[in-house]
Design a protein around this nucleic acid. Sequence first.
RNA 1: GCGGAAGUGGCUCAACUGGAUAGAGCAUCGGAGUUCUAAUCCGCAGGUUGUGGGUUCGAGUCCCACCUUCCGCACCA
Length: 566
Amino acid sequence: MNFTHIIAEKINQTLENTFDLDKLEKLVEKPKDLNRGDYAFPTFSLAAKFHEAPQKIALKIADEIDRTNFANVKAVGPYVNFFIQRVEFTNQLLKEILLNDDFGRNNQGAGKKIVIDMSSPNIAKPMSMGHLRSTVIGEAISKIAKANGYQTIKINFLGDWGTQFGLMIAAYKLWGDDKLINKNPVDELVKLYVKINKESETDKSLKDSGRAWFKKLEDGDPEAVKLWNWFKSVSLKEFQEVYDRLGVSFDSMNGEAFYNDKMEPVVKMLASKGLLTESQGAEIVDLPNLLPKDNYPIAMIKRSDGATQYITRDLASAIYRHDAYDFAKSLYVVGAEQKDHFDQMKAILKLAGDDWADDIEHIGFGMITMNGKKMSTRKGNIVPLVDVLDTARQLAAEQISEKNPGLENADHVAEEVGAGAVVFNDLQKDRNLSIDFNLEKIVQFEGDTGPYVQYTHARAMSILRKSGQQAILNTGVTFVDEEAWPIVSRLSAYPEMIKRAWQLREPSIVAKYLLSLARDFNSYYAHTKILVNNEKMQSRLSLVQGVCSVLKSGLNLLGVSAPNQM
RNA sequence: GCGGAAGUGGCUCAACUGGAUAGAGCAUCGGAGUUCUAAUCCGCAGGUUGUGGGUUCGAGUCCCACCUUCCGCACCA
């Protein structure tokens, strides 16, 4: 039932239909405090037209309005407050939740594809907390998009190409030890990389050697290709472990190397459209000149040594994705510091006549810092993601052995709770806020955390399990506790929340919603005993089931699992 | 210098895009255990929403100016 619409209609009736329904409907709001009502209508904007005080208008409306569908309508100051018929509403809502697996989902995106560029770690470098953000935000946005009816294509744009790999091969040829690398691939490769970078400062020949090896790699030299493939496969194997723990998968792993043969056509295309300029030996798109109003930096397409740049590769991949997937939107979940890069990319595509560039969106997110400073592999102040996940799992295991020693699958649950804490922590704030790394905070299980929501789900499930009732479905609700009303109201907001989360591409909306729902439920739980055999029990159990269902579904949108016991 | 993000209790964040008394969590303090999981709940305390103007019935939210922090601004990605 669309109350907003009904209210607008009814109010218009009392005003002799002198107003535009859409305008009235826009004015209807949900009060922050449920005690004020379930819906409210502020009368300020009518005051001028009727030359009367808002308070008087509110009184008049409340007095004259048709009250069907409402338990109560009353004027409070300049507001008209509406109260829903609770039992009927709850009954209908819970039937919808319990009888459908897909409560909250909608079909607005039916038949449309969303491409999501996410995670994108660099081969032979450890996955850090920075990659975590891109990975979990991308995954959540994908799930939210699906809940809105879209099909999604998740792409892991691996950093698997560049002169660094020539250097890598050179280092391997000098000092590499197969056994060590196979045992601890990324660690060892990073050591080699760091070592050759350091030594090349004094021994310039090493850099030449690296360049030579990269040239060989580009030319398809068997040994170079073999080594590159090996580095890639051992790295991927290690990445995969992390992805498995996070419950993340991809539809494409086409990294930078995949676009090697697709860049020259882009360069030619740009040249043919007269967008390419030569400057200081390099090939550039002179955006400051072409689009003086937009204030973009110069885009370098080819360096003076002839090598292509990041933006060349991204142009190639953008075009490829457009051709291959015919997307409705192409999203890039990449740090906010790269905003200019994506602005440039879109501007160049538009200049080239590709108007679909308007469907490209950069989903930026804030930087993770360490003691307020940027993390950097070279400076050694990065935190490997695996370490964080391990710590979280360890702490979860300790909690379980302390609070629920007999738990079956304790190891598995510890993993779910640990990962849940890490992922949820990353998703609960607006994505464009910067975060200063704080391990204690990430592995916190109390208060506004993932485990808090998981725990709420687990104890609600526990009630259902112990109720011994199988047939909660279908039984109508005949009673609603006064204290349970915030829960019902919150549950009913789930579908709108899912739309909004997609519109804003903002997983934190889901996280905040879940925290609120969990808080509502825990408060109710603490004050109302549910498993008492009386006429209210059935209704209450239905409500508990509804809460379980939405908590689980919402956690799933964030890529966080919902164990039945913990 | 230009552009972007941010500025709200001691700390970390909300505030449904202009509405009613600015809300949570952490930390502190005080309560709640024979009960469906205390990873919980209840309560006390804590605020001139960076500053100064403006717009209007009404501003944390919109406009202007300024201040502070972080991030970008062609041969890394």
